[in-house]
Amino acid sequence: MEALIAAAIGLMTAGGIYLMLRRRTFPVIIGLSLLSYAVNLFLFVAGRLAPGLPPIISKTAAGYTDPLPQALVLTAIVISFGMTAVLVLMALGAYLTGGDARIDLDDGGAE
């Protein structure tokens, strides 16, 4: 299972970075969201995998997974929504007032 999770994290990272290297605002925002998933998942698995052992205290539980990364990631998920929303508004503002959805100051040389 670890290999699959690691592969998923890697794939989302790669996709996120690829999209963030694009030159329009929209793919960069999508890429950042993908990267956020990857980072959140990475932080979460820092508590190691423990399927079926939720961190809810009970007398019958066989054991618990590490609750701390979960708590950290939980707030990170909500904050990343805030970040995405701010970026979206900035992209909108740039497009509406600047008339262009390109992300760079200038063309930076035609490629």
């Binding site: 670890e2 290999a3 999770i5 690691a6 592969a7 994290i9 890697g10 794939l11 989302m12 990272t13 790669a14 996709g15 996120g16 970075i17 690829y18 290297l21 990857a38 990475f42 698995v45």
Partner: peptide, 14 residues
């Protein structure tokens, strides 16, 4: 570039 970065992160996570 992103492929290498992804591989590295995957390796690190694993």
């Amino acid at each position: 570039l992103s492929g290498v970065a992804g591989l590295a992160v995957a390796g690190l996570a694993y």
